[in-house]
Amino acid sequence: MTKPLIIAVAPNGARLAKSDHPALPLAPREVGLEAARCREAGAAMIHLHVRDAEDRHTLDLDRYREAIAAVRREAGPEMIVQVTTEAVGLYAPAEQMAAIAALRPEAFSVAVRELFAEPDDEAAAASFLAGQARAGTLVQHILYDAGDVTRFQGLVARGLIPLQRASVLFVLGRYSTGQRSQPSDLLPFLAAWNSGHHLDLPWALCAFGRREAACLIAAACLGGDVRVGFENNLWRPDGSLAPDNAAQVAALAALARGLGIEVAGPAVARTLLAARR
């Protein structure tokens, strides 16, 4: 039996603007309303980015609090809110960790190659992650290639990354013009994940371009979870522009259900993410 599928929506990201898509949600109220629509369409989690007054990527605490409040107001208290720590060349590991320590979110994502950028970063990063594990935070570790997978496993084996409430996200491709991921791009990640030091953790996938849905359904059939949305892809499989994030979520949920895969609600998603498989 395939486990219930957790669908996360990443509605905006750090790089796109309204000029890329007029329905890109940037203001807190826009994000809140889109979260509500995506929750109704089947998303159990929102991956949250916020922008400053000039619509630039920021980790500003007040901006985060305002956006989280909007999600709670519009989408209700159940949807999991996962905040990003993405650096985008603007933030050092110490700043990323300080933001999470002050915000104390239910869930956040962090790139292994950013948090453990240099050998000298290891002690502080390990202490930070241990504290988050004690606090019961859901931590998603972002892995960009098979090398990141191997490095993550090594950091776990050395006791630098705790496994309590941890998961990973495989990113198929890069934030570059014309990037188009393929389902076969998942194979090197899984080969690394299933070799060597086996980790009984939830894993999820995001992908770029019009074959996003094909990549995500492949992951779902193999026991993974998925992240869909405008952060990574604006296009339908037929090459037309998607109307909004909720339409992408609904289409993916329909594909999953058509294959007999249950779509998890927030309560089930929390249970799955909090328990190592």
Rank of each mutant, 00 (worst) to 15 (best):
A192W: 00
A192Q: 06
A192T: 09
W193G: 07
W193S: 07
W193N: 03
N194S: 13
N194C: 11
N194P: 08
N194F: 13
S195Y: 11
S195K: 04
S195G: 15
G196Y: 03
G196H: 08
G196C: 14
H197G: 01
H197I: 15
H197T: 13
H198D: 05
H198C: 07
H198N: 03
H198P: 15
L199S: 08
L199R: 04
L199G: 09
D200M: 07
L201Q: 06
L201V: 13
L201N: 07
L201G: 05
L201T: 05
P202S: 06
P202E: 08
P202L: 06
W203Q: 08
A204T: 09
A204Q: 14
L205H: 01
C206T: 15
A207N: 09
A207K: 04
A207G: 03
A207R: 06
F208S: 05
F208V: 10
F208W: 09
G209S: 10
G209Q: 07
R210Q: 15
R210H: 13
R210D: 14
R211Y: 12
R211V: 11
E212Q: 15
A213N: 01
A213Q: 10
A213D: 10
A214T: 06
A214L: 08
C215N: 03
C215L: 14
L216I: 14
L216T: 10
L216H: 05
L216V: 14
I217P: 00
I217T: 07
I217S: 03
A218T: 14
A218H: 06
A218W: 04
A218L: 12
A219F: 08
A219Y: 10
A220I: 04
A220H: 02
A220M: 05
A220S: 02
A220G: 01
C221K: 12
L222T: 02
L222N: 06
G223K: 03
G224Q: 04
G224R: 10
G224V: 10
D225Q: 09
D225V: 07
V226D: 02
V226I: 12
V226Q: 00
V226P: 00
V226R: 00
R227A: 06
R227K: 03
R227F: 09
R227G: 00
V228T: 15
V228D: 02
G229H: 01
G229D: 04
F230G: 01
F230C: 04
E231H: 03
E231S: 05
E231N: 05
N232I: 06
N232H: 07
N233L: 10
N233V: 04
L234R: 03
L234W: 03
L234V: 08
W235N: 12
W235S: 14
W235V: 06
W235L: 15
W235G: 08
R236I: 04
R236K: 13
R236L: 15
P237A: 09
P237Q: 12
P237Y: 13
D238T: 06
G239L: 13
G239D: 11
S240V: 03
S240H: 12
S240G: 11
S240N: 11
L241D: 06
L241K: 12
A242K: 00
A242R: 02
A242L: 07
